[in-house]
Write a protein that binds this DNA or RNA. Sequence first.
DNA 1: TAGATTGTTAATCGATTAACAATC
DNA 2: TAGATTGTTAATCGATTAACAATC
Lengths: 213, 213
Amino acid sequence: MEEKGISQAVISRLPRYFRYLGELKDEGVERISSQELSEIMKVTASQIRQDFNNFGGFGQQGYGYNVEYLYTEIGKILGLDKKHHLVLIGAGNLGQAIANYMNFERRGFLISGIFDVNAALIGKKVRDIEVRPMEELEDFIREHDIDIGVLTIPKNAAVDVANRLVKCGIKAMWNFAHVDLNVPEDVLVENVHLSDSLMKLSYNINRYETSKE
Amino acid sequence: MEEKGISQAVISRLPRYFRYLGELKDEGVERISSQELSEIMKVTASQIRQDFNNFGGFGQQGYGYNVEYLYTEIGKILGLDKKHHLVLIGAGNLGQAIANYMNFERRGFLISGIFDVNAALIGKKVRDIEVRPMEELEDFIREHDIDIGVLTIPKNAAVDVANRLVKCGIKAMWNFAHVDLNVPEDVLVENVHLSDSLMKLSYNINRYETSKE
DNA sequence: TAGATTGTTAATCGATTAACAATC
DNA sequence: TAGATTGTTAATCGATTAACAATC
């Protein structure tokens, strides 16, 4: 599996391929051509072939792609064959929504610990995981071999917690706070800025309405 | 404000500009040059000027940009000067997280109604808004001039609800379900696929680790 | 073998960056 | 006016699409 310098544009499309291939697999589809897949997914067949070829040849001329094989390989590329251990920081609604979302677990994303500043929440259980006080964060991370810190807390808190996470050596964060976290370049941050998403929708609503006039 | 054929790449950057300009404004900064802003935001000054010029000239040669004015104008472009009325479908953790997130309200996104299939939730209040049964959805939307449907429900339900929303004339959806909704082309869908985001992070963790070896 | 479809190169398109003349 | 910085054109870079030879 030779991979280097794959653009983020390609990476962003992989989970969507993975999703569609999973569905096709469940429907019992054995093989698919880039042409057929392109019709289902509404992208060009050319793009599909280019994307897959970034990672080596998964198909066979004259046949197409084997759905199950392709599904598995894309899963591997995405690292879904490995387990990831997460800590969730912020046990509010959003944090609980994520903790309760079973499918992440199925993909190897296991929540090891949940933390919150709110004393009222400490000791409470979310999906069988006890909420811990923030003071225990560093020790817990070191002891449990944590990969990913999930930040479901307000932005000021997120900046502080991100610094703490960096100090105890965390290598990846999934950030739901509406700030850009300032971290060393070897620390990965994947942002989910919900308000940005909503604003984009708002822009497009406006655009559509004014263009009709 | 002459706008046409603005690429989604540009639109995607607007909320981030808006966020930074809001912070600068709060800090009392009056003017800023594309050069200064580029250093803070870690993008090129050239891109900033190009982006703003898609919407006409907001700056002044030799001076730069007036922070407050630019902030207001970008807000208008994003449609944040107008009110939007939303219905939330799915009163689970994720739905509640969104309902409780005050800042959306500040930006003109007002939740008018909350719906759920779960009989146990009906009548319960989330942020002073009563949860209603799904049967009332269509009437409610027609009576309350709803802009946006927010789907915080599992994927099978989302497909059905999206069809119902289309039928009663909704023009925009904010979709948190892990499906691509199939809607007429004049209906806007903004997707938040959390699992896609997490998979991207997973890919990059893997990449980083294997590249070290 | 003939037909189908990939893998891959080449052409096109769009987005980003650089450069600089216009102008405050 | 001189200096600064935009608005805008031109150059570069990267991503997408088209085309086709390789090959199953």
